[in-house]
Amino acid sequence: MKNKTKNATLKSIIDVILYENPSTQDEIAERLGITRRYVTKLLQPLIKEGLVRRAYIVDIKRLEEFPDLFDEEITSREYAGSFFIKEMLRDMASHVCKQLRASFKSLEEYDEELANDALKMDYITNTMHEKVRASVDTAISMNPYSEFSKTMNFTEIAYDLERIGDHSAIMPNFVIKEAYEVDPAMMDYLRKMFSIAIEMLETAMEAFLNEKLELKGRLMSLEDEIHRVQKSALNCVATQMAETPFEDKERSTYYISLSRIVKTLERIADISIEIFDTAGEYYRNIPRTTTPERFRRREKEFDFE
């Protein structure tokens, strides 16, 4: 247990070096809340081996020589640097799921304070995206011709997660800006869509992070289900809107915003499919189609007709 704790701390030190560019060991110690002496003690063997160079740079290509730093075995396909960036994506996905849940809760409870808290979470999502992007750029510049260049896929996953964060923000903005809360009948549809959308996101990230491409069937079933619920939700909005007097502009604006929430949950589902497609490219070299998911779905519907 003691050795595991030491390795976890050393991994945190390397994270700081990789992603925060400290100039001194004092800076590293301050950011992690540990003593400079302990930082020196842990880094000394790695400096001696040349893995860490002073002022402070990590040789990403050599990280796989230190397997004890990792919680799981590194596959032959993956470099240790890839492992570190995948861990960043794991953390980012977890945060985005929390942001999505917080956003929907603010909508469900029509709570402005919860809405503001959910919107603040989007700043963290954006910061995480920038850290992944910068880390990938650094890794590729150090070794541009190796298989490690496949980590460009990581930038796309981070971008997809950031887009989901942006879509999530539509729900708390509805709470802050609109004068009416969602009625119970419509909320039932939104709950169903939300539940499916977040399961799709978690399933897609599970496929990417752990090479579980066999999850495709489950993901496709969820996709069909969310679009069935979406049609019913939009019909509900249209029916309610038809019963609203034309001169009631405030209520009309409310229905337009409500339709955007339905579309938002659909887009989160579509982006989850895009994440899965990226997993197929990353692990199996399966080329991704350039046709966006929503257009592929329409083509499929036309073929069926």
Rank of each mutant, 00 (worst) to 15 (best):
T5Y: 15
T5E: 14
L10M: 07
I13K: 02
I17C: 02
E20N: 09
N21G: 00
T24V: 14
Q25V: 04
I28D: 01
I34A: 06
T35I: 10
V39Y: 12
T40N: 00
L42E: 10
Q44Y: 10
Q44D: 10
K48F: 13
R54F: 08
V58H: 04
V58P: 04
D59T: 00
F66I: 00
L69P: 11
K86N: 05
K86Q: 08
L89P: 02
A93W: 02
V96K: 07
C97G: 04
C97E: 07
C97W: 05
L100G: 06
A102D: 04
F104Y: 13
K105D: 15
S106Y: 00
L107I: 13
E113L: 15
L114Q: 05
A118D: 02
L119A: 07
L119C: 00
M121C: 10
I124T: 14
T125C: 04
M128N: 10
A134T: 09
S135K: 10
A139R: 08
S141C: 13
N143D: 07
Y145P: 05
Y145W: 13
S149W: 11
T155V: 13
D160Y: 15
L161W: 14
L161D: 02
E162T: 11
R163P: 09
R163Y: 15
I164Y: 09
D166H: 09
H167F: 11
F174T: 13
I176H: 14
K177P: 11
E178H: 12
A179W: 04
V182Q: 03
D183I: 11
M187C: 13
L190T: 04
S195N: 09
S195P: 05
I196E: 04
A197K: 09
I198W: 08
M200W: 04
E202C: 01
E206F: 05
K212C: 06
L213G: 12
E214N: 10
L219H: 07
M220K: 15
S221E: 15
L222H: 13
E225C: 09
C236F: 05
E243Q: 13
K249S: 14
K249H: 10
R251T: 05
T253E: 12
L258H: 02
L265P: 05
R267T: 01
I268A: 01
I268D: 01
D270G: 00
I273E: 00
E274M: 11
D277V: 06
A279K: 03
E281K: 11
R284A: 12
I286C: 06
T289S: 12
T289H: 04
T290Y: 14
T291P: 00
F295E: 00
K300A: 14
K300F: 07
